[in-house]
Design a protein around this nucleic acid. Structure first.
Length: 491
RNA sequence: GGGUGAGUAGCUCAGUCGGUAGAGCAACGGCCUUUUAAGCCGUAGGUCUUGGGUUCGAGUCCCAACUCACUCACCA
């Protein structure tokens, strides 16, 4: 995989062809081409039997059938494929060059459109130009690249060797564009807040640390934009959202990448009930627009997104699936021990939540809003006025995966400051580097309107809507251990 | 970090009870003007991840290391 070794025999053969092409006085790395049409558009616009239709398509040669004096090429561009037919009779003068064109090369071709006798729409090529000579051979034409590690490392091959990969990332782009349009049409303002922060707040996660040389200070890559977006509420932006990366220095899994895309939004004068309606509307809007059905498969699961979605209280779900009662901590601790959870020296709220995660979450397949979390685990959320033991917070679970998290924002600076201090006392030194964000408290003291806030994990949303069971399949370049590190470890 | 599975030709994969390494695609040389993963004939291609061990003999069995996947743990 490293290029320090001598070129493979395949590369040597291709370099020899490249030299031959240069001997024809042709440049194997061509220039700008105007008027290129997408393959899918050309095929869709083709009128059967009509004379004189021409097309210009460019792309990569993914199949190559040489029948002697006739060559059929399947050209792939980002829209799909189209067949080129090259006849020696038409291209007599270029034939020696054409015989050197091979799998993996990128070409542009012009010609008359027609159909072969098997009905395939074909460009009968009158001129063909090499735009980029491939020095490395493509992977196996039928199975493509299937080694998972290699696919992620060589996404530039994966994208054209496995068309469903291209399709999924095109879907992702279309879906995020729809999210932006949906929110903008509702009057939300898209903003960008710092990715590098002097205090990494808004969530409980270990941050990445970096350093600014001129200021000689350590900075943290953000773990959440929350505290900055709320400052914008104080500033008078009543509806704001941001779609951007968060960075968390935690483990990797099929559901966790160290950098991931989060959409957070805040709406003044709203609460978590408004956020629930909005979340449901947003996701269903995406499904209606981009998916074939309201029931989507996700790996082995089948998920029904039809509205309304289930809304269930945290405490009730704990009774239903966890067989214990939050009001009876003895029963919860007993259950924790049965589950093998170490509950020694842990707060009641923490033990409850561990039992919840162990027993409830796996059952939440169809979209389910889990509402009214224990206030003790929600330092940024307003407590319920009816029952202060609970916070006005929901998490949305789909496919047993946490997809969204929202709450009625806490806007009382005194309570907020007390919550921060309690949180700092409870943290273990090795876990976080959390510091009190005094400036955020100051902001709240100027008055933040009551508001609802929502965070949606965009990668996970795309996973669910495109049936990708690994987050690495919806991130173009997921974090991988570098190959150089591998080699160093081996020596 | 724990558990399970995997690592064989450029790619996708076989390899039986431990007995001299196989196919398809790609490549190379031929033939072929309507193919659809084109076809036919021929050629070449291997430190079986690495290092030990058992054995007359190891791709195969044992041990260790490395890498990957899944999974658990960690993870608002």
């Amino acid at each position: 995989m490293t290029e320090q070794t001598a070129p493979s025999k395949f590369e040597q053969q291709r370099r020899e062809k490249l030299d031959k092409i240069r001997q024809f006085d042709l440049d194997p790395y061509g220039d700008r081409i105007d008027g290129v049409q997408p393959a899918a558009t050309v095929k869709a616009a083709f009128v059967d039997d009509a004379e004189g239709q021409t097309a210009r398509c460019a792309g990569r040669i993914v199949l190559h059938r040489d029948i002697g004096k006739l060559i059929f090429i399947t050209l792939r561009d980002s829209s799909g494929t189209i067949q080129l037919g090259l006849s020696k009779k038409i291209l007599e003068g270029q034939w020696d060059f054409i015989k050197l064109v091979e799998l993996g090369d990128i070409v542009v071709a012009d010609g008359q459109l027609g159909k072969t006798k098997t009905g395939e729409i074909t460009i009968w090529v009158e001129s063909i130009t090499l735009l980029s000579k491939a020095l490395l051979p493509p992977p196996e034409k039928f199975h493509g690249l299937s080694d998972v590690d290699m696919r992620y490392r060589m996404r530039y091959v994966d994208l054209w060797a496995n068309p469903e990969v291209m399709a999924r990332f095109q879907q992702r782009s279309a879906m995020t564009a729809s999210i932006r349009r949906f929110l903008c049409e509702k009057g939300f303002l898209e903003v960008e807040t710092p990715m590098m922060q002097t205090i990494a707040g808004g969530a409980a996660a270990r941050p990445f640390i970096t350093h600014h040389n001129t200021l000689d200070i350590d900075l943290f890559l953000r773990i959440a934009p929350e505290l900055f977006l709320k400052r914008l509420l104080v500033g008078g932006m009543e509806k704001v959202f941001e779609i951007n990366r968060n960075f968390r220095n935690e483990g990797l899994s099929t559901r966790h990448n160290p950098e991931f895309t989060m959409m957070e939004l805040y709406q003044a004068y709203a609460d978590y009930n408004v956020m629930m309606d909005l979340t449901e509307e947003l996701v269903c809007h995406l499904i209606e627009r981009h998916c074939a059905s309201q029931t989507l498969s996700f790996g082995e699961l089948s998920i029904d997104y039809s509205r309304p979605w289930r809304r269930a209280r945290y405490a009730d779900l704990l009774k239903e699936y966890g067989q214990c009662d939050m009001d009876d901590m003895a029963s919860v601790r007993k259950r924790a021990q049965e589950l093998g959870i170490n509950d020694v020296n842990k707060d009641d709220a923490v033990v409850v939540n561990e039992v919840f995660e162990a027993t409830v979450e796996a059952h939440l397949i169809n979209p389910t809003f889990v509402i009214d979390y224990p206030a003790a685990i929600c330092p940024l959320t307003r407590q319920s006025k009816k029952d202060p033991r609970f916070a006005e917070r929901f998490e949305l679970f789909v496919g047993a995966m946490e997809l969204a998290n929202a709450y009625t924002e806490l806007n009382d600076p005194v309570v907020q400051e007390a919550n921060f201090r309690r949180q700092l006392r409870g943290q273990r030194d090795d876990e976080t580097m959390a510091k009190m964000d005094e400036d955020f408290i100051t902001a709240l003291k100027y008055g933040m309107p009551p508001a609802g806030g929502l965070g949606v994990g965009i990668d996970r949303l795309i996973m669910l809507l495109t049936d990708a069971t690994s987050i690495r399949d919806v991130i173009l370049f997921p974090l991988l251990k570098p190959l150089s590190a591998k080699q160093e470890q081996e020596t």
